[in-house]
Design a protein around this nucleic acid. Sequence first.
DNA 1: ATGAAAGCGCTAACAA
DNA 2: TTGTTAGCGCTTTCAT
Lengths: 337, 337
Amino acid sequence: MATRADVAKLAKVSPSTVSYVLSGTRSISEETRKKVLSAIKELDYRPNHAAGSLAGGRSKIIAFIVPSGKSGMSPSFVEYISGVSNAVRERGYHLTIYNNNEITPKEIYHFYQSGVLDGVVLMEIEYNDKRVEFLTSRHVPLVLIGRTGKDDKLSFVDRDFETDGEAAVNYLSKLGHTSIALIRVRRSEKDTGISADIRFFESIKKACKQLGVTLWDRYSENSAAAGRETFIKLRNEHPEISAAITLGDYLTFAFVNAANEFGIKVPKDYSILALAIPDISIELTWPALTTLTVKDEELGYNAGKILLDRLENESEESVHQLWRGELVERGTTAKKI
Amino acid sequence: MATRADVAKLAKVSPSTVSYVLSGTRSISEETRKKVLSAIKELDYRPNHAAGSLAGGRSKIIAFIVPSGKSGMSPSFVEYISGVSNAVRERGYHLTIYNNNEITPKEIYHFYQSGVLDGVVLMEIEYNDKRVEFLTSRHVPLVLIGRTGKDDKLSFVDRDFETDGEAAVNYLSKLGHTSIALIRVRRSEKDTGISADIRFFESIKKACKQLGVTLWDRYSENSAAAGRETFIKLRNEHPEISAAITLGDYLTFAFVNAANEFGIKVPKDYSILALAIPDISIELTWPALTTLTVKDEELGYNAGKILLDRLENESEESVHQLWRGELVERGTTAKKI
DNA sequence: ATGAAAGCGCTAACAA
DNA sequence: TTGTTAGCGCTTTCAT
């Protein structure tokens, strides 16, 4: 491969001039710029990335830590990946992916120490997130998709749970439902719960109280099997419940399927409002889901952007973005009869 | 951050000795090894990645080019990501992800030239794949998940379509189905078709001929809407068809849902056998899908491994891995009545 | 078994 | 506007 020295020689300029033409960090006469650019073209020169990193002190690599479902990463995370990926590519950065199950915060820090990565985007933040604590204490540049319990000095992109939770209850209440279930996600026995779960619960509980709606709060693993089981149990215990608000994609699909299976008509006999379904999966059930969701890809995109802004401006100011969902009525909700 | 020189000073050895302790490429006395390791620990030293790459000539970064669905990457690709990711992490490499839609083969080559990546894993290979052609002609180390029409000198990991296609037809034929449909995936009008589609078609056609089964070959985009439309049209045109073999996940879900929607009982009136569904999505429909699938994560894992073997042994021998699917009967297939 | 030293190909400060 | 030069922190060859 051609090096900068080769280009310099061919263009009859000094090596550093080649660098300056490429970086645009100092003014260059039109003449030399042309010479240099044509030499670059002729030799098909690309600056060596490692050399740049070594001299410049930054790798231009961002890491995205992706959570894992039972059998690997869950499909719903793909939209985030896509969003973050687009954000970093726009600015000439690269995106590395690590499985949350396969990597410890310590290892992430090691990668940061060794300069393989300039910053990290983290998702599925828990209310008390040890990863966040560890990485911030080590000053690893960090942006969260979600947030911890303490509204930190950290930058994050998250849903506006207060508004969305209220909107969900409002909607179902207007349809005449007075007894509803909230199905939220728990990933394991010892799971303290991700922040989204807890915040949604708080706002939904509050709204139910105000509107005189009875709320049944349930946990389910986000899998088809667990969702089905939860539905059956709930139905047996509380046949008076006529609507459910669900978090988690698989569990939601299972809810619709379980209703079908047991001859309960959705939405005539049972309304289901999904709060966390990736766009691409909305039409997967029959009938199609009524949703109140945000665009995950957009959240990912913004998380990436915020991180790069911070890295390039060296600014320490944290930014907090809250996104409101949009309610789209499809086939799984109806007036209570 | 501490550098190698700091460690050397503290351990009272030369800098290169530190490197050799770490790389294990020359014998070291137990005494100096101990001194060095404890100095490393004390200083919390991590070798600088860029410096290593620059001096050593390899970035230890592998790129995975992921295809995009309509709205970003499709969920079914997540298992591959997971597999490749695990393979590279095991060997101390890092995995970068690029969207097929957002990156040209030329850009991939640029990254290779600049040393940001040592090799590439490519998936959703077309029968005539220009990306493959371009990258091989530039000698970018490459491993395919899938394969092109010409059985190259390239390494690949792929399904054993001949065997699996035959097994699928055999199974349905034994259940008494004599008129079946094959629904395969087309991503756009001008799409020549991915290799999997074509190879499955060939083997299924052959098996049908041998067993006296009538085959109806159809294309559908892999989306819920397109799958539904395809089902309806097919049902109207050929009500005698009693079973379908499907490729593509979304389209398969839509098939089951459309049957539900129109009061056609699955599997009593209509059998559906899915050939390409990620494990995690198998239970998403009701009833759960009967499948004949391979473990995508395992394919991804092996693709990654093969690439690293090649990079580290510098061997030019290509390896061709063919994986057979496993038939698992669940709720969407039954004897024809 | 260990050390010394020549690069790897850049960035950026300094000099002209 | 351009050139010179001192690193950046390693890998690896050559010496000892």
